[in-house]
Design a protein around this nucleic acid. Sequence first.
DNA 1: TTAAAAGTCTATTAACTTGGTAGGATAATG
DNA 2: CATTATCCTACCAAGTTAATAGACTTTTAA
Lengths: 135, 135
Amino acid sequence: MLSKKSQYAFKALTYLAIKYNEGPVLISEISKKKKIPLKFLENILLELKKAGMLDSKKGKGGGYFLKKDPSKIKVANVIRLVNGPIAMLPCVSLYFYERCKNCDEKRCGLHDMMIEVRDASLNILENRTLKDLLV
Amino acid sequence: MLSKKSQYAFKALTYLAIKYNEGPVLISEISKKKKIPLKFLENILLELKKAGMLDSKKGKGGGYFLKKDPSKIKVANVIRLVNGPIAMLPCVSLYFYERCKNCDEKRCGLHDMMIEVRDASLNILENRTLKDLLV
DNA sequence: TTAAAAGTCTATTAACTTGGTAGGATAATG
DNA sequence: CATTATCCTACCAAGTTAATAGACTTTTAA
């Protein structure tokens, strides 16, 4: 399951996507409109900025804004950034891979099946962007 | 991600699947062969029994065994039982549904996409059984 | 040039979950 | 009735999640 943090991140990002090219948006505005605890949102946005997804401006007239076009920001990347692995097992994760203990990946039915699940999910998540989330 | 508990559960269940119809299997045997902490495994097997997936016999010659044929036990059900929801959001979960706060499901792009992801995963997990995990 | 605006940073906290342990109660067998 | 093995209740340590607090820095504009 996605953490609350991830859900907040998506709400904030889609809000910024709608206001793309309208200049910086205040944290406090996003917080109020999307009902996200202000200080928690601060942390999230800062993290997204450090990851290169957002940029910001300080001082009066400042705020946060998307660094790239909403159609260039993949949902899969947002999830990996804020939530972590998409796969159900570390041993089938592409970006967070860890070998299984006491388990031969070559002969593990669970492993094989979880690769299928991963690919089925990625087939969707890698091909959708923030833009697709705007209804 | 699946918890360690879930991974242990799958290891134990596949072990029992191999020994299906060979009578009760000791917790201690599973623990040793599959390298699962004994007391932790006790809890897991008991839980699986209460859920009707396993049955057990006490005393000498006792142990645990699958209640149904391995081909009748769906992977999806094992995950729901031990790990919880398969969906990435409560608002798109079939068995653990919870309404979103401050979010209209009718007009939420994330919601719609997560339904797709859920269905893609379930399409696999609902159609595989313990038997399919034996390589 | 200085005050206000707004993001940045560090740290702390409470609640919950996870992984695991301890020890006795209960039931079946021979 | 002693042995075997599951059943049950409780507990604990470590880690994660969600959130808060407060001081600091940068920018802008009066």
